[in-house]
Design a protein around this nucleic acid. Sequence first.
DNA 1: CGTGCAGTTGAGCAAATTCAACGCTTGTGG
DNA 2: CCACAAGCGTTGAATTTGCTCAACTGCACG
Lengths: 215, 215
Amino acid sequence: MLVEAASLSDPTVHPLGRTGQRRYPPPGTAGLAGARLSFNRNSEIYGEGEPAAHLYQVISGIVRTCRFLIDGRRQIGSFYLPGDTFGLETTAEYTFSAEAVTDVNVLVVKRGILPSQLWELMGSELRRTQDHVLLLAKTAPERVATFLLEMARRVRSRDEVELSMSRQDIADYLGLTIETVSRTLTQLENESAIALPTSKRIVLRDRATLKRLNS
Amino acid sequence: MLVEAASLSDPTVHPLGRTGQRRYPPPGTAGLAGARLSFNRNSEIYGEGEPAAHLYQVISGIVRTCRFLIDGRRQIGSFYLPGDTFGLETTAEYTFSAEAVTDVNVLVVKRGILPSQLWELMGSELRRTQDHVLLLAKTAPERVATFLLEMARRVRSRDEVELSMSRQDIADYLGLTIETVSRTLTQLENESAIALPTSKRIVLRDRATLKRLNS
DNA sequence: CGTGCAGTTGAGCAAATTCAACGCTTGTGG
DNA sequence: CCACAAGCGTTGAATTTGCTCAACTGCACG
């Protein structure tokens, strides 16, 4: 991990874990501002159970948050793309760990967060998680199609998506195995719904088919 | 839908519930104030897509929130027990519909909500939903065991739980079919992990086994 | 005493997982 | 530059899990 700006030990961290406290920053400090950090692929940004001291905004790269069952099964909560903010917690400790899917640059957000921004952030977290629950009610092809459409929407891509994360990451997000993800992608390709120029690059050829699966 | 006129003597069942008498709220409702409403079993409290005008607190009975996929599959988001608050939304419209699992009395909360209370509420919604995602990563016996332990915890019951909701409700919450729920309960009973004096009443006989499944 | 509904149980089936093998890419050292 | 190992992804076969369909039971309510 590489620190490019201010120190993390700075004690003026906004106490995000606490509720009922309303701190309004002085005018002019609104917006996201803080130290910039780099993380290597697959390194941990923070761990489940650690004090939830910071908020992070993705500058470049992709971040995943995940939780584990005791036997090692992993559930990925979300992927965060550039511009997304992660690390918002309602408790004193992180309930998920956050890891770098690719090499990542993040901005540590220490202050200057308005309550309205926090509210907005929490709202999008909640909606994302609710959609995730609905996704897990679907069949394998439906989950994969939903995932592809979601990723295409989030990267504002017309019809091509770069899946930077591994098949294992996708599988743990969708609640499937890597084999099922792989087979489903192949099947979608055979149906001409998508094309797979490389294993990480996906062309959406027939959005209608995908949307139908999306339910 | 909110019904203003009280008509307790009216024996006909209003499709969207009927009003009840005003009473003093039960303990634990400090800060929340509003009209009290009654809804009959299986009536809709509000629908997905309606303007999210109100917050509700359960006084008595059980409420479920749910969403549907286009083909009719239903996903239950949460069950709300007495004391729980539901209807908190981050958008202008409800993303779930809310229905009465049993006959229900609720308090409509229109104002008097502090930002800190809203924050707390949103936080518990988020945590609940995150736990739901993790639950859906589990096997059928694990899901059922987790559900039983959660319900027992929430009703603060030593070792007996009244499952007021139907098997279909449980199945749609756990992402299983009623047959699988039924079979799993039978299996747990055969393993002496639980007892089923009636189909709706469950005795937790061996929490250790259930907790092991809970992962 | 039927009728209807909720829940249970059984048999067969389908979907997804597991286990295993294989291919393709990537990176490394000779 | 090539050889080779390691990791990731794909594919196939067997297995398991949970689902579908169907029958049956118990119970509440007329």
